[in-house]
């Protein structure tokens, strides 16, 4: 069950927002379980030090196998399309060849936690999805304002330093809802 972030301790460096980290695993045994029931809360944090403390205990995405996702979202935003903060927005989706997930996930979440995107309240959260073929990194934002979406893309390209042929697509959540593939 979800627990809110503790207050930053003495001498710690507060973050602009508190965040919550979730985990989900899809397998044969829980294929019919509803998406939100499959989400496992890991921890939430309010400072840089609390983040590193939690992060040090967690298996790197690249070392995971099977159909696994990590979700890092601002406290109060559920990592689901239906959440009020998400439903009018969308996400940048980046396909990663095997071997890039851990580095790119770390670069992405550090940029998010450090407010490097400079788009005000727009960022909702980040997801790394480990799959059999390519892995998928995504960054969710609130609105479908083209200027904001482009600015987020530019920062993603700066902070992730992706291989030149990396596929980046923007997908609105309403499109995702219609997508039956």
């Amino acid at each position: 069950t979800f627990r809110p972030a503790p207050k930053p301790g003495e001498g710690e460096h507060p973050l602009q927002y508190n965040y919550a980290l979730w985990f989900s695993r899809r397998s044969q045994s829980n294929k019919t379980v509803r998406y939100d029931q499959n989400l496992k809360f890991i921890a939430s944090f309010a400072s840089v030090e609390q983040f590193w403390n939690i992060y040090s205990y967690i298996v790197r995405p690249g070392d995971m196998t099977g159909h696994v996702d990590y979700h890092l979202f601002k406290e109060g935003i559920r990592p689901m399309w239906e959440d009020d903060a998400n439903k009018h927005g969308g996400k940048w989706v980046i396909r990663l060849k095997k071997g890039l997930a851990s580095r790119c996930w770390e670069n992405l979440i550090l940029a998010m936690l450090g407010e490097q995107f400079m788009v005000g309240e727009e960022i909702c959260g980040a997801v790394i999805s480990i799959r059999f073929q390519d892995d998928i990194l995504s960054l969710w934002n609130r609105s479908n304002d083209q200027a904001i979406i482009s600015r987020i893309r530019d920062t993603l390209q700066r902070v992730l330093n992706l291989p030149p042929n990396t596929i980046m697509d923007y997908k609105s959540h309403t499109d995702s809802l219609k997508d039956t593939s």
């Binding site: 602009q16 030090e49 550090l110």
Partner: peptide, 21 residues
């Protein structure tokens, strides 16, 4: 208002602080 901003190198620096362990 002001925003609390950290670049990557600052966050990596703070990773080694005793408070982060």
């Amino acid at each position: 208002g002001t925003r609390i901003v950290y670049d990557r190198s600052r966050l990596m620096q703070l990773r080694n602080s005793p408070l982060a362990r």
